[in-house]
Design a protein around this nucleic acid. Structure first.
Lengths: 204, 204
DNA sequence: TGCATTTACTAAACAGTGTTTATTATATTC
DNA sequence: GAATATAATAAACACTGTTTAGTAAATGCA
């Protein structure tokens, strides 16, 4: 009865094919322009076939959403070696901002768009998000223990840090930073200066 | 030749009718579900008629976007009387957050959605936004002059403050605060605690 | 007042979208 | 080899924003 296993494997391969095509199209032309029909065209199947492997468009983008969290996580974990928790926090923050600025479509899907959240609502917990957020929590916890940052409630501090970096990136990604009326590269510099100031204010 | 003036008045009245209907539908059921056809149904005209008064859907929502800025501005200006610039800044911040939490659809349109920004790109300046942001700048300028907040570049500080409160509100509005796994009213309390901590860190 | 012209409006169509259904072709089981 | 289960699709459904062509009413002018 190895046929069932092969079929299962083929089913997974088809899912991967769809996800790969969808990811590529999404990063090239954004969410709205990545239609089910355009994915179907790309993989040379009919649009209806996609619905044999995914419930709806949101489910496809939920998988891409999960993959994006893995990528961000890998970036953030690079700083595991930094012994000083405050300097590790600084590195994590800079990397988070850099990821957002360089991967605006991924960032949008992860933290701004409503689409993938419809899937998550019905889950026991937001695993991917909890992972990255958990990493922030442990780092901040160390900072507090070693009195490297101003004493305050851990969760309240975590929300403050995350909200700030998310605010920076999302205002940039959704084109609200134009009120500064600066060239794009200068805006990025101001963003990082703002992060430096935030970190300085956080310090004991 | 008063006919031309009457026609102009009637044209403006029709625009107002469309905007009023669109605003009402938008606040009731959100942007995506507010279709041109639903607006047309509501005002009892054909969908094509709307295009005689507005270039496209974005232009309608750009006007609503402008109105929303006027509303926020009125809320913020209530604190003009607070002499202490730091306490004024605190009041402005709390009001900004409160506005976002209580008017998530307006907030979305103003600071998150892409739709109205297509109109703004081609403008000499983002008047409404500049107004509210300008208010933040003058208040922060006073804070810096009176050494009520830590010395730093004015614009860098302004971006920091705005990014933080925007981050708070937008993570809440776009349902990312669920990682806290708290009941909704508790989440709001943590949000305000986070703001208090931010203000404490800002203080000299 | 009567006729020509402009204005206001709309029905219908166009080109898309996500999704479902009925049907066909293929593969597996007995 | 016949019956059954699986995989894929063409076509349709119900939407969307927007455009075009045609109609009815209001206006300008003689």
């Amino acid at each position: 009865m190895a046929i069932k296993e092969r079929k299962e494997r083929e089913k997974q391969e088809m899912r991967n094919l769809i996800i790969e095509s969808a990811t590529q199209l999404f990063l090239k032309q954004g969410y709205d322009k990545t239609s089910i029909r355009s994915i179907a065209d790309d993989i040379e199947y009919s649009p209806a076939t996609i619905y044999l492997y995914f419930k709806d468009k949101d489910e496809i983008f939920y998988v891409i959403h999960e993959n994006a969290f893995d990528i961000l996580d890998k970036h953030l974990r690079r700083h595991d070696g930094i012994a000083d928790p405050f300097e590790r926090l600084r590195a994590i923050g800079r990397t988070y901002i850099k990821f957002g600025l360089e991967n605006p479509d991924y960032y949008d899907l992860m933290f701004i768009m409503r689409a993938p959240m419809e899937q998550i609502k019905n889950e026991e917990k937001w695993k991917a998000g909890e992972c990255a957020f958990g990493y922030l929590l442990t780092t901040l916890s160390e900072c507090l223990d070693q009195k490297r940052i101003r004493p305050a409630d851990l969760h309240v501090t975590a929300i403050m840090v995350w909200s700030f970096v998310h605010g920076l990136v999302s205002l940039y990604v959704r084109e609200r930073m134009c009120i500064l009326m600066l060239p794009d590269d200068t805006t990025r510099e101001v963003l990082y200066s703002s992060f430096d100031l935030f970190m300085a204010n956080l310090k004991t």
